[in-house]
Design a protein around this nucleic acid. Structure first.
Ligand code: SF4
Ligand code: SF4
Lengths: 155, 155
DNA sequence: CTATGTACGATTCGACAAGTCGTATATTAA
DNA sequence: TTAATATACGACTTGTCGAATCGTACATAG
């Protein structure tokens, strides 16, 4: 499951809105774009999609902008990824929403591996509400490399 | 991390070779293609890449074909995916082999989520030798849906 | 010496990610 | 009232990549 820029940008904007949530004042597209390093016109598209989804609302006119439409506990990262990137499964034969049949299924040995990945990933993503994730700490540089010294393989 | 057809085809062929490994006789491209439902000319390309990688060897001439070049314990699914699809990370900022810097890293809240996915995925994939995976059972139809009844979200 | 195989560069074809543009419309401060 | 500041939204561009196909050269067992 590859995360597209679009999804990444959407999440950046959402978390900015979460952090502004208590304050109640809307943030303009311009501000969102600048603070998160996203092309403004592109972000416009993205916010529009999220508005249709009911995650944000917009306030028009001067002093207008965007506000989170739901409480941060009600939106999960999984929902966002699923909307923009379509699917969390690494391959069609273990997907529910976009299942693709494969005639090798009955004999396939490695399908189980993908199923395990999918189960773990969805578990994590669907438990990740904006509220919970926002309370976590940013990743420290060393953490990125931690696994690789063990496996020797990397990434 | 999306699994491409190419990777999937490569794995199908490899596991066929694993199952033939004890026998020592080569299998022709034609047979591999038919048994695994892969376009023949396309598989040709793929086998060639795997030969360069040292995973398989080819025997030319009549009665020729392909044989596994290493023992099934020495090849992991992780290696195969990494070769054909480049990367196991869901996003560049948590990748080691193809790290892409992002200027939001120091403040980013959801990066940790992707790091966790990456860690679990690589752990699984790098522990999955062809031998070990080949000894597992195929997935039963119900298993695909198991998670979704809990999370309510699917995939 | 030919049937049956692999070797390999070149090429096609379509889909999709990422981003841009132009213009219409809404709201409010001055 | 109107200028300034917003969002709304369809159309368009551009590049990359997955997936696959072709043509032809070469190897060797029988
Ligand atoms: S070969 Fe196995 S993993 Fe690949 S699509 Fe078919 S069932 Fe799924
Ligand atoms: S915004 Fe966060 S998750 Fe996205 S690329 Fe930057 S650091 Fe990684």
């Amino acid at each position: 499951m590859k995360i597209s820029k679009k999804t990444d940008y959407a999440l950046r904007a959402l978390f900015t809105l979460v952090q502004q949530y208590s304050q109640g004042r809307p943030i303009s597209i311009g501000q969102l774009a600048r603070r998160n390093d996203v092309p403004k016109r592109f972000l416009e598209r993205i916010m529009l999609e999220m508005k249709v989804k009911g995650w944000v609302t917009s306030v028009m006119g001067k002093q207008g902008g965007y506000v989170l439409a739901k409480s941060p506990e009600e939106i999960t990262v999984g929902q966002v990824i699923r909307h923009f990137d379509g699917v969390l499964s690494p391959i069609g034969c273990v997907s529910v929403h976009q299942y693709e049949r494969c005639n090798q299924e009955v004999a396939c040995r490695f399908r189980r591996l993908f199923l395990e990945v999918r189960n773990h990933t969805t578990g994590l993503m669907d438990a990740a509400t904006l509220a919970r994730v926002n309370d976590g700490k940013p990743v420290q540089p060393e953490e990125v490399y931690s696994m690789d010294l063990i496996g020797g393989a990397g990434i």
